[in-house]
Amino acid sequence: MIRLEHVSKTYEAGVQAVTDVSLHIAPGEFVFIVGDSGSGKSTLIKLLLKELNPTHGKIIVGGKDLEKINRRQIPRYRRNVGVVFQNFRLLQDRNVYENVAFAMRVVESPKKDIKRKVPTILSLVGLAAKYRALPRQLSGGEQQRVAIARALVNEPKILLADEPTGNLDNRNAWEIMKLLDEINQRGTTVVVVTHNMDFIKTMNKRVITIKKGVVVDDQGGEEI
């Protein structure tokens, strides 16, 4: 599903964020990418979203070489990759329903599909009853659920989560991890960037460890 071949990324200031990373994530896998802050984890997510282009190497997602996707084709590519952020990135002036519906409107889904799918996905993340609440009226965990619902509503094959529990207390963080696991059970490939070792030990998933931009460990999955 995701293949990185000798990928390096050097920022304009000369900072080497990722160095010669090669890895393969199979369809339906649940993978943790761990590392200290500044280790290059977030750069990896940005490379996978094609927010950034690698300086060297090749990234292939869902059979597509990202280098060959031009600017006009980026929106279509991103529709297959759901993304969740540490700070949720919800639209503060719109309610729960509108935040999720927004993702479908952006991809120009028909109105009737929006009306049908948004309540379903809100039920999946356990927020059906709070569909009219504004983000500021929700707890951190609930806001992250809205963000996950938004990421999933267009049925992407891959879900990228960048520190999804970074702003949450332990109980809420666990709830979110369980939800991501459930989503993975339904067939979505899930990549979670985190530095919380508690989940990693308990959940028994593949863990890729990055240090100073280099993959130093890859446990529980096949390395290429």
Binding site: P75, R79, V107, R150, A151, N154
Partner: peptide, 16 residues
């Protein structure tokens, strides 16, 4: 700005 960034990250075309 944030709204535009979110739109772009979830696959909005420039025209949208």
């Amino acid at each position: 700005k944030e709204e535009i960034a979110i739109m772009k990250l979830i696959g909005a075309k420039d025209s949208f």
